[in-house]
Design a protein around this nucleic acid. Structure first.
Length: 573
RNA sequence: GAUUCUGUAGCUCAGCUGGUAGAGCAUAACACUUUUAAUGUUAGGGUCCUGGGUUCGAACCCCAGCGGGAUCACCA
């Protein structure tokens, strides 16, 4: 049972009226088209003769009816096209129903129609379709928000409420073309990346999303349960350890683009499920990876923006490499003037409190350095910058630095103050790896809930031998935000996670009848805005009795008044 | 999780000091055969998020809850 507003009732009536005229509002048919809105706008002026006998389909978005002629706009996946409809073209004979009734009255904004006609240019210079035939393809029975734009692109009645836009993304996509554009760009970013990898001979793979050990990163997982195996399973927080197993298995380049799941907070840069790309290439190191990433990102920017310069917020970012490289210690030195490279844990802790950075006892040396970096450096890294050579404590899966003791071969790429990529020369010494996991265990015992879990099977794989390998992870959503100049992750996810909508179960007539209510009284009950059984149950019987009798009289319902006792019985039933 | 702002017609929003709920678009009716934010005339449309409280009287003030946004904290 659904409560309908005036416009929804009106549209349902139109649907009935169409059926009565013998027009199926939802015909089962295919409607072949030979043109799109974008094609017509681009090419009509140069190839005018080719644009006769056009068939095109789309959603009716605006109408300007002027008596026996009308202008309207349809929208297909490529954009909008104005159509020109004349009564005497559609209805050459006496019977003008098709235009006067069907087109003008029974169609509405949001309906899908198929059209046949020829393209022409109006007096005001707008390329338009002169309609010779139209077919209703699908009737819309819910009113669409109508967004108006003038010639300068000013928006007049925007559909802007973020809650509605995210919950009803389909509506957002229909009425806000720039939203659709963002997602087209997102798709291009991913396909460009995929093509780049494939062209290099690296193979796309799929690894388990349901994992028994949630390794490869430090985060709280979503937990579920497999009934047949009677075992707990986790939605993956990372896929790194599986991809490395494939390198052990003999593939020399593997990548995966897919969803990760983390049971943590949500904000404008975090969604519980997000898309990451991870790639592992054998016989490479992180120096090589930096060059690859520069090349990749510049190619993506070129493909989606047509340039390597991108406007991001108030900044213009140049994505053409080579990017600046700074070691983590150098970056802290550069932005604070302090050399932390020789400090021990105690000195670092003192420095943090001096800088007003909150610390707690669970934090080891690496974590403390990371805190300083996050607080003092990150925001300054606007142009693409590689931060390299991280403290070993915070990076249990990366190989020890070839020349700098206490550090690992790792870089993160920062753009506009945000991290968008993370890469290592991968740790492939199984003995070292086991020790690192054990160190993580110790951190966990100190209370660090982000410490990584031991994965015995992964260690077994490493023991068989993994070639030197470099690995990279890119946060796809963040990259998309960057390249589409969006400041919230929700704008680059079709369906961002939201709290569930409150569902109210509207009582049907049968539900009311079941309580012993005379069907003739139901209109009075609804008129009192009583729509759910719970609502009814919560009412005072005397008040309800008075209200129902009063409404019954007002609505002139031809049924007897209920007795007070009957009304009490409804409530107590 | 904390702070703060916010919830009024299908959509976007007004609503004064607490005194019968308003506009534009959309919808409906009439007019109009090259309009384009079409236009003109007219009409209908409301659980003012929910529940309590204060008051003669609450969209408005107070309390609680629910949804959403922003900022902060954690994480990518």
């Amino acid at each position: 049972m659904q409560l309908l507003n005036e416009q929804e009732i009106e549209r349902r009536k139109d649907r009935e009226a169409l059926l009565n005229l013998g027009i199926d509002p939802y015909p089962a048919l295919s409607f072949p088209i030979n043109a799109t809105a974008a094609d017509i706008h681009q090419n009509y002026n140069n190839r005018k003769n080719d644009y006769k006998g056009i068939t095109i389909a789309g959603r009716l978005m605006t109408r300007r009816i002027m008596g026996s002629a009308s202008f309207a706009e349809i929208q297909d996946s490529t954009g909008r096209l104005q159509i020109y409809v004349r009564r005497d073209d559609l209805c050459p004979d006496e019977d003008k129903t098709l235009y006067n009734k069907v087109f003008k009255k029974l169609l509405g904004i949001g309906d899908f129609i198929g059209l046949k006609g020829f393209i022409f240019t109006t007096q005001t210079g707008e390329i338009s379709l002169h309609v010779q035939e139209f077919t209703l393809l699908s009737k819309s029975v819910k009113p669409l928000p109508v967004v108006k734009r003038d010639d300068e692109g000013n928006v007049f009645d925007g559909f802007t409420d973020p809650e509605l836009r995210y919950r009803q993304r389909y509506v957002d996509l229909i009425v806000n073309p720039e939203v659709k554009e963002t997602f087209v760009t997102r798709s291009k970013i991913i396909s460009t990346m995929r093509n780049y990898f494939d062209d290099h001979g690296w193979m796309e793979v799929e690894t388990p999303i349901l994992q028994q050990v949630h390794g490869g990163a430090a985060a709280k997982p979503f937990e579920t349960h497999h009934n047949a195996l009677d075992t707990p399973l986790f939605l993956r927080i990372a896929n790194e350890l599986y991809l490395k197993r494939l390198i052990v298995g003999g593939f020399e380049g593997v990548y995966e683009i897919g969803k990760m799941f983390r049971n943590e907070g949500m904000d404008r840069t975090h969604n519980p499920e997000f898309t990451s790309m991870e790639i592992y290439v054998a016989y490479k190191d992180y120096i090589w990876m930096m060059e690859m990433v520069e090349d990749l990102i510049a190619k993506i920017a070129n493909r989606v923006l047509g340039t390597t310069k991108a406007k991001v917020g108030d900044n213009v970012i140049e994505f053409e490499g080579p990017y600046k490289r700074l070691s983590m210690f150098e970056s802290i030195q550069e932005y604070t003037g302090i050399d932390v490279s020789q400090m021990n844990e105690k000195e670092l802790r003192a420095l943090c409190s001096e800088m007003g950075i909150e610390v707690d006892d669970s934090m080891g040396k690496g974590k403390l350095i990371d805190e300083i970096f996050g607080e003092k450096v990150e925001e300054h890294l606007i142009q693409p910058t590689y931060i390299t050579d991280y403290p070993i404590e915070m990076t249990p899966l990366a190989k020890k630095h070839r020349s700098k003791p206490g550090l690992v071969e790792r870089f993160e790429l920062f753009v506009n103050g945000k991290e968008i990529a993370n890469a290592y020369t991968e740790l492939n010494d199984p003995i070292d790896q086991r020790e690192r996991f054990e160190d993580q265990l110790k951190l966990a015992q100190r209370g660090d809930d982000e410490a990584m879990a031991m994965d015995e099977d992964f260690l077994r794989a490493l023991e068989y031998g993994m070639p030197p390998t470099s690995g990279l992870g890119i946060g796809i959503d963040r990259l998309c935000m960057m390249l589409t100049d969006q400041s919230t992750i929700q704008e680059v996810l079709f369906f961002p996670q939201m709290k569930p909508e409150k569902k109210v179960k509207i009582a049907s007539d049968e539900d009311f009848i079941e309580l012993g209510i005379n069907p003739g009284l139901i209109p009075a009950i609804r008129e009192l805005n009583i729509h759910t059984i719970e609502q009814l149950k919560g009412l005072n019987p005397n008040k309800l009795f008075n209200d129902v009798c009063g409404k019954k009289k007002k609505l002139k319902l031809d049924v007897p008044n209920p007795s007070k006792e009957e009304v009490s019985n409804w409530i107590n039933a």
